Every structure is written in C-alpha cells, then in structure tokens.
Computed example of a mutant assay.
Amino acid sequence: MPRNSKDGQPFDQIKYINQWSKENMASVSAKYKKEFVQEFKAACLKLDLKQSDVFRNAMQAVIDQANEQEQS
C-alpha cells in the first residue's frame, strides 16, 4: 500500500528527495586541464580512493586550519 502525504495524495519519494537535496546540499565546481584531471583520476584509481573523499578531506583540512587560526 503506497504511503500518503498529509494532503491525502500519494507520497512522491523522488519529489521529496529532490526537495531535500535542494534545501540541504550544494555543489562545488572547478575546471582544470584534461591531462591534469586524467592524472588525478588515475591516481585515485591506483590508490583506491574516491574522488569525492579526496575533495571532502581537502575541504575539511582547510576548514580545520581556518578554525585553528581563528582560535589563536
């Protein structure tokens, strides 16, 4: 039996996910030379790393550094 929303209409899972993403997520974009990107992708594959994890870790390191500097 499908779930119903508060207004009695069938619950639209895709609409819910898209709305949640719109409200809670953001993207970061950058462009680099193709050779550089291909080299990065190959390095991630060789090291068994997800590209998104590399980006997240680098971003978190910058945030941490800024927070440490702020506390000094």
Rank of each mutant, 00 (worst) to 15 (best):
M1V: 08
P2M: 06
N4F: 10
S5L: 14
S5C: 01
P10C: 01
P10V: 01
F11I: 01
F11H: 09
F11N: 03
F11C: 02
F11K: 09
D12M: 01
D12R: 09
I17K: 02
Q19F: 08
S21G: 07
K22T: 11
K22I: 04
E23H: 01
M25W: 09
M25I: 14
A26F: 06
V28Y: 15
V28M: 12
S29R: 03
A30G: 05
A30V: 09
K31V: 14
Y32W: 06
Y32G: 05
E35W: 06
F36C: 14
F36T: 12
F36R: 13
V37P: 15
E39T: 05
E39R: 13
K41G: 00
A42R: 02
A43H: 07
C44S: 03
C44E: 01
C44T: 03
L45C: 02
L45H: 04
K46M: 02
K46Y: 02
L47S: 02
D48E: 06
Q51I: 00
Q51R: 11
S52G: 06
V54H: 04
V54Y: 00
F55Q: 11
F55Y: 07
F55L: 13
R56K: 07
N57W: 10
N57Y: 08
N57Q: 11
M59F: 14
A61M: 09
V62L: 14
D64S: 06
D64G: 14
D64E: 04
D64I: 10
A66M: 14
A66C: 14
A66W: 13
E68L: 14
Q69N: 13
Q69P: 08
Q71K: 15
Q71G: 13
S72A: 15
